[in-house]
C-alpha cells in the first residue's frame, strides 16, 4: 500500500505513449471524456474501442496494471449489465424461460453502457500509467499558462505541487518512523476505540508538523539565497517538447470526434 502512495500508478517504460508530451496526453484524455458520451450505436462504440485498444497496445503497459484500475468498477458494470438485460424491453425476444424474458434492446443497451464506463476508466488510467505526476504537473502548468493573464498564480501553484510531490516520500518515511516509535511504546493506530485512536494521532502529528516547518524554513532560505523570484524569466531543467507524435495524437482525437459526430444515430 505504501509504495502505491508514493509512486502512484505510474509504470516506467519507453513506449511512444510514455514519451509523448504530457500536454497532448492531457488534452486528449480531457477530450476523450467528453466524446465517449457521443457514441450510441455499434459503429461509434467500435471506433472508441479501437482507439482504446490501439492506445493500450502502443503503451506497452502490462495488462494486469490496467486490470487493477478496472477491478473496483467490475462488479458495478456486471450488475448494471444484468439489470439492463432483465429490465430493458424492446426489439426481438431473444430468450425466454418461464417469466424470464431477454430482449435484444436489453443486451444492446447493457453492453453499450458497460463499454462506455470501461473505455472511460481505461483511457484515464493510461494517462496516469504512462505519465509521471511531475510531468502531469508541468503539462498542467503550461496548459493553464494563459490564466496568468487574469492574475491566477499558475506558476506558484505548479511549483507548490512539485514541492509537495518531492516531499511525499520523505514525509511518508517520517510518518512511518514516528508511528513505529509510538507503536514500540504500545500505541495502537489501527485498532481500539475511536477516542483512543484520535489521541494516538496527536504525538504523531506534532513532530510531523514541526519538522516539516523546519524543512520549509531551510528550503525557503536556500531558494531565496539562489535568487528565486517567481515564475517570470525562470529557466527549467526539464523542458517539454511538442513533437510529431503529439500532433498526430491530437489529429487522431479530432478525426475520432468528427467521425463520432457523423456516424452516431
Amino acid at each position: 500500500m505504501l509504495e502505491n502512495v508514493i509512486i502512484g500508478q505510474y509504470v516506467p517504460g519507453r513506449s511512444i505513449l510514455h514519451r509523448l508530451d504530457p500536454r497532448s496526453k492531457l488534452i486528449s484524455v480531457f477530450l476523450f471524456v467528453f466524446i465517449v458520451f457521443l457514441a450510441n450505436n455499434w459503429v461509434t462504440y467500435g471506433l472508441l474501442g479501437l482507439f482504446t485498444a490501439v492506445a493500450i497496445v502502443v503503451s506497452q503497459v502490462p495488462l494486469r496494471f490496467l486490470y487493477k484500475g478496472l477491478r473496483p468498477i467490475l462488479i458495478i458494470v456486471l450488475f448494471t449489465f444484468a439489470l439492463h438485460i432483465f429490465m430493458t424491453k424492446g426489439g426481438a425476444l431473444l430468450f425466454q424461460f418461464g417469466w424470464l424474458k431477454i430482449y435484444e434492446q436489453g443486451v444492446v443497451q447493457g453492453s453499450f453502457i458497460s463499454f462506455r464506463l470501461i473505455f472511460l476508466v481505461l483511457v484515464t488510467s493510461l494517462l496516469t500509467l504512462t505519465t509521471t505526476p511531475i510531468d502531469i504537473t508541468d503539462g498542467l502548468e503550461q496548459l493553464l499558462g494563459p490564466l496568468k493573464r487574469i492574475k491566477l498564480p499558475v506558476h506558484e501553484f505548479a511549483l507548490m505541487m512539485s514541492i509537495a510531490l518531492r516531499f511525499i516520500p520523505t514525509l511518508l518515511k517520517e510518518t512511518e518512523k514516528i508511528m513505529k516509535a509510538q507503536m514500540a511504546r504500545g500505541v495502537e493506530f489501527t485498532s481500539g476505540p475511536i477516542k483512543e485512536r484520535i489521541k494516538a494521532f496527536i504525538p504523531l502529528l506534532v513532530p510531523l508538523f514541526i519538522s516539516s516547518f523546519k524543512r520549509a524554513e531551510e528550503l525557503a532560505l536556500a531558494m531565496e539565497a539562489r535568487g528565486y523570484r517567481g515564475g517570470e524569466g525562470r529557466t527549467k531543467l526539464r523542458i517539454l517538447k511538442w513533437g510529431m507524435g503529439d500532433s498526430i495524437l491530437i489529429a487522431v482525437l479530432l478525426i475520432l470526434t468528427i467521425s463520432l459526430f457523423l456516424l452516431r444515430s
Binding site: 505541487m161 514525509l171 510531523l208 508538523f209 516547518f213 525557503a220 528565486y228
Partner: peptide
C-alpha cells in the same frame, strides 16, 4: 519569513495531507 516560506510551508502541509489520506478508515 517571506512569501517563499509561506508557499513552501503550504506545499509541505499539502504533502502531509496527501500522506494522511492514505491512512483512512471506515467508521
Amino acid at each position: 519569513k517571506g512569501k517563499v516560506y509561506r508557499m513552501i510551508a503550504v506545499s509541505m502541509l499539502s504533502g502531509i495531507a496527501y500522506v494522511l489520506m492514505a491512512f483512512d478508515f471506515p467508521l
